[in-house]
Amino acid sequence: MTTPTQSLSAAGVSVWLDDLSRSRIESGELARLIGDRDVVGVTTNPTIFAAAIGGGIGYGDRIAGCAARGLGASETIVELTTADVADACDIFADVYAATGGRDGRVSIEVEPGLARDAAGTAAQARELWAKVDRPNAMIKIPATVEGLEAITETIAAGISVNVTLIFSLERYRQVINAYLTGLEQARAAGIDLSTIHSVASFFVSRVDTEIDARLTAIGTPEALELKGKAAVANARLAYEVYEQSFATERAKQLLGLGANPQRPLWASTGVKDPSLPDTLYVSELVAPGVVNTMPEATLNAFADHGEVRGDTVTSEYLESNQLLNAIDAQGIDYNEVTAKLETEGLSKFDASWDELCETVERALEEQR
């Protein structure tokens, strides 16, 4: 019998896990997810590593080794996280080979404090790429205005990039432009474009969380009827942007030279509102060539009772536009919402990084 995750994969969705830890690697659990849950990639972020390293399981010896070398907290974090990512890349090496580099990817993010520093982001992207030293790694770069420049520079250097924290359709268009510009520069430098891969992580659930709170505050029947719908509509329109952008002459020329399209990735797919179906941001966002990176709870829920009804995106563009227009008519400013979500997303990662630094610093002190 075909499982829900097998059906999802057959429909063109790459299932990635939004989590990583030393215990997942060493227990064999991560490897088992490839067979049991059809997982073909992994994403990480500062919050994930703060939880993993803060939990302490599996990191003691490595932290002791860093302390013996006299490393500080930030240097130790780089040592720990890049080791996890490199080992996870090795676990997914067969997937990477079987898919021609499309999947089997493991992402690691630049330090959150660099989000407004284009040069610093690009420099650390090169450092992390060299440190992990695996062709199936991806460097995560936030889609801030400054990040756009760093994305181009990193792609131009032949480094695969996962662009993260995308909330608005306009910023997504800018991200695709940054990717295409990077490919053009890579080609000019003589780099084989087929070796460069990228995904654009379009965040989903947080859009509903913010807009639904505003709709609830309005409180009219018309407003309440729109709850739980904005995030899916926004993501569906992002896929339309993807289709349009990679059908341009500029993109087709690069694809004809061996370049890969920058695939849309649905991130933040764990449902926050318990009144909504726990698989909403998976089943309603099925389309060819996308990635859905899921926290473990969402992955398990979909594996248990998820439904795949074929493509649930490309026939919904008109309705999705109408939905966002209806929300705008309620006085909710789309641009203000998405700008707020970007700022909050960066702040959350900053807080997680600070927490992680404090945890590691304490652990280092205990070893000294």
Rank of each mutant, 00 (worst) to 15 (best):
I77W: 00
V360M: 03
F92M: 04
R69F: 05
R126G: 00
L265D: 09
E111H: 14
S168F: 11
W353R: 11
V290T: 15
A223V: 07
A186M: 11
M294H: 05
E170N: 14
Y317G: 08
F302G: 01
A297M: 08
G331A: 08
N45F: 04
I159Q: 06
T44H: 02
E153T: 14
A88S: 05
E316C: 13
A67N: 07
V39G: 10
L30I: 04
K140Q: 12
S268R: 06
L215F: 02
E153Q: 14
S315C: 01
P261T: 07
V85W: 03
G65I: 08
C66Q: 13
N260K: 07
S7A: 15
A51W: 09
N300F: 04
C357Q: 14
W129A: 13
E342A: 04
N136E: 07
D278T: 04
A52T: 03
V271A: 09
A122K: 10
A251L: 01
T154Y: 05
P295W: 00
K140G: 12
F49P: 09
Y317S: 02
R236H: 03
E79P: 07
V286S: 12
V204Y: 10
D87L: 13
R116W: 13
L237P: 13
L237Y: 00
K227Y: 03
T76F: 04
A251S: 12
G54Y: 05
A115T: 12
S194E: 06
R236V: 00
E319W: 02
L128S: 09
E222F: 00
E366C: 07
L17R: 11
D212F: 11
G306S: 08
V282T: 11
V78P: 04
D61I: 08
M1K: 12
E307W: 00
A247W: 06
S347T: 15
T293E: 08
Y242C: 07
G41V: 07
I53S: 08
R32M: 05
A31C: 00
I155M: 01
L356N: 08
E249K: 10
D333S: 05
V360Q: 07
E284R: 12
V13Q: 15
V286Q: 01
R236P: 08
I211F: 05
D36I: 00
A156H: 08
T269S: 09
R62H: 13
A10R: 14
G55T: 02
L299T: 01
A130C: 04
A98H: 10
E344A: 14
D117N: 15
S352G: 12
S14F: 05
R116Y: 14
S160A: 09
N45W: 09
G28L: 03
T248N: 09
Q174V: 00
L237T: 01
D212M: 06
L20R: 05
V106A: 03
T209P: 06
V204L: 06
F349H: 11
L80Y: 05
T99V: 07
T43F: 11
